[in-house]
Design a protein around this nucleic acid. Structure first.
Lengths: 193, 193
DNA sequence: ACCTGAACACCGTTCAAGT
DNA sequence: ACCTGAACACCGTTCAAGT
């Protein structure tokens, strides 16, 4: 009976999306199973760990991101613009579910995590954009891909906090201004066009 | 019998320091009570909430910080140096216990939290230093005390992550360079002296 | 093969019962 | 006044028993 197994899996994912939207990464596995109408053990079979469930929830979005960056890298005229929009895109993504940024940061150096590969892909994509901008001299040279990943997730964490959320845009502005050497402000951008 | 109550309280705090050093902010209350040799309900009487326990654990350190900043504000010749060392000092403090920075960020806008007053004091102290530096034109003007608090805690969170801890000093350097208008690098500092 | 219920060892909260 | 044990409703993990 592989058919019902598949049905259970998709049902779990559908329900999980709702529950996780509401309760974040520390949502109750039992609650998800209950609402999905399956036993808790069934959920654990499909997704043996919390990270595994989130990997399934995020993989399509993450793939789109790490693919879309390829487009941006090419389509965007300036490398610094590409880096900047990647930064913003990723911070926005980390807001998809509360606590997901902490989970990704933890997975970054945990080979056993089901999210390790996805995080590595995100990291690599960012590092490439950074390197490109550095090559053009528009991003500061004393920065590594690790630094970029750290700054993005740190900002994602801050935006996760209800107290800081209202200042989100401005915080992004502050940090990115530290990354880019030439202040690509709106005025300068308009003047260039 | 108020004597044994006081003894219990101090015993709980002593043990809590160890347990929390090991397990961070999500240490088990039951475990602390067990190791302190008291009933769980006794611990809950003394510290009705997790935040209340941490308030007791941190209050002396936090008071020292928000007092010491007064010294720094006066003693230090330049306002930007004072702001910078406050920034570093606070990031270092958030590393005292794992997860404490998240707790403080949450407490910042939660009037019910036992940590609210302490966080407000930290916020106020930082805002004052920032304002002073802004007055001298050494800190960027488009920044609020809230932004400063957010950046400090965000950095504290990043340093909390094992993956980012090795880059801690450099990350602090990156962020602070975004805050200060004049790049008070080591060279410039030496030249001024 | 796949699912399930139950047992297990935890957690924080609450409260009646002890001194 | 202060403390305690136990009951409660949760959690994730594990596994023998069902189809």
């Amino acid at each position: 009976m592989r058919a019902d197994a598949e049905k259970n899996r998709s049902q779990i994912l559908t329900v999980a999306r709702d529950v996780v939207t509401e309760h974040g990464t520390d949502a109750s596995m039992r609650d998800i199973a209950r609402r999905a109408g399956v036993g808790l053990a069934t959920l654990l079979r499909h997704f043996p760990t919390r990270e595994a469930l989130f990997e399934a929830l995020l993989c399509t979005n993450l793939d789109a991101l790490t693919q879309k960056k390829a487009d941006e890298l090419e389509a965007s005229t300036s490398a610094d613009e590409a880096l900047l929009s990647w930064f913003r895109e990723l911070v926005a993504f980390t807001q998809s579910y509360r606590g997901v940024v902490a989970m990704m940061a933890a997975a970054r150096t945990n080979l056993d995590s089901a999210l390790y590969a996805s995080c590595a892909a995100v990291h690599a994509a960012g590092a490439r954009l950074l390197l490109h901008a550095q090559g053009e001299g528009t991003a500061r040279a004393d920065m590594s891909g690790d630094d970029l990943f750290a700054l993005i997730t740190a900002l994602g964490w801050a935006v996760d906090q209800p107290s800081f959320a209202p200042r989100a845009d401005h915080l992004v502005h502050l940090i990115t201004s530290a990354i880019l050497t030439s202040p690509s402000s709106n005025d300068a951008k308009k003047a260039a066009c």
